[in-house]
Design a protein around this nucleic acid. Structure first.
Lengths: 101, 101
DNA sequence: AAATTCAATCGTACATTTGCGATAAGCAAT
DNA sequence: ATTGCTTATCGCAAATGTACGATTGAATTT
C-alpha cells in the first residue's frame, strides 16, 4: 500500500471503536462470540466441531478476538478455556452505544 | 485463499452484523460517519478537506459505507450529498444492541 | 458545443486477511 | 523419557483492503 507519509491520527475512541468493529467484521467471529455468550466459556476444540473450519483457522479467529481484547484464554491443561473479556466487552458495548446515539 | 468447498451458512443476523461491523472496521469510516452525524449531511469534497486523503480514497470509503447500507447519496448537481441511511442505521443499531445484550 | 466542476472508476502497488495442511509447543499421564 | 492430547504457529496461496494518481463520467454553465 502506498501509505501517507505519516499515520493519520484519529481520536482515541475512533481508533478503539474501529478496532472492535474490525474484530467483529467476520461472521465466524460473530458466531464464536454468540456461542461464548451462551456457553459463557468454551474450548477451541468445541468450536472446531461447531464450525466446518480447520482447527488452525478457528485458532486464528480466536487469536484475533483475543488481540482485540474481546475474549481471554485461561489455561486448563491440556485445554484452553476461552471466555468473553467482560471489562473490554463493556467498553466495546458503550463505545457502540455512544456511536449509535 | 483456499476456500472451503461451500460457503458457510450463518444466520441472517450474524451475516448482517458482520457486514455492518466490517464497514465500521476502519477509523476513517468511523470518522466519516461521526462527521455525518454531526453535519447530518455533507459532500464528498468536504470530507476531502477534513481528512488528509486523496479524493479517490475518500470516495472508496464512501462507496463501502454505501454498499454496507449505512449511508446514501443524493444527487445535488454538480455535487452529491451524503447522509446517514436512517432505516439501515437503526437496523445496525439494534443488531449491535442485541448482540451486546 | 465547449468548458467547468465534482465525484466515481480504473490501474497499480503493496499490506492484510482468510483459509488450509503440516509442524511445533505445552502439559499430563504413563 | 515417551506417549497422547490439545492448541498455537508456520508456510503457503488466493482474496480482499487501502491508498494513490490519472482518467472518465455526469451535469451545469458559458
Amino acid at each position: 500500500m502506498k501509505r501517507s507519509l505519516e499515520h493519520i491520527e484519529y481520536k482515541e475512541d475512533t481508533e478503539a471503536l474501529a478496532k472492535f468493529a474490525k474484530a467483529l467484521g467476520h461472521p465466524t467471529r460473530i458466531a464464536i462470540l454468540k456461542h461464548l455468550e451462551n456457553q459463557s466459556c468454551c474450548f477451541t476444540g468445541d468450536l472446531v466441531n461447531v464450525f466446518p473450519l480447520a482447527q488452525s483457522t478457528v485458532s486464528q479467529h480466536l487469536k484475533e478476538l483475543k488481540n482485540a481484547g474481546l475474549i481471554k484464554g485461561e489455561l486448563k491443561p491440556p485445554k484452553i478455556k476461552y471466555c468473553i473479556h467482560q471489562e473490554n466487552w463493556n467498553i466495546a458495548k458503550s463505545l457502540f452505544q455512544k456511536f449509535f446515539d
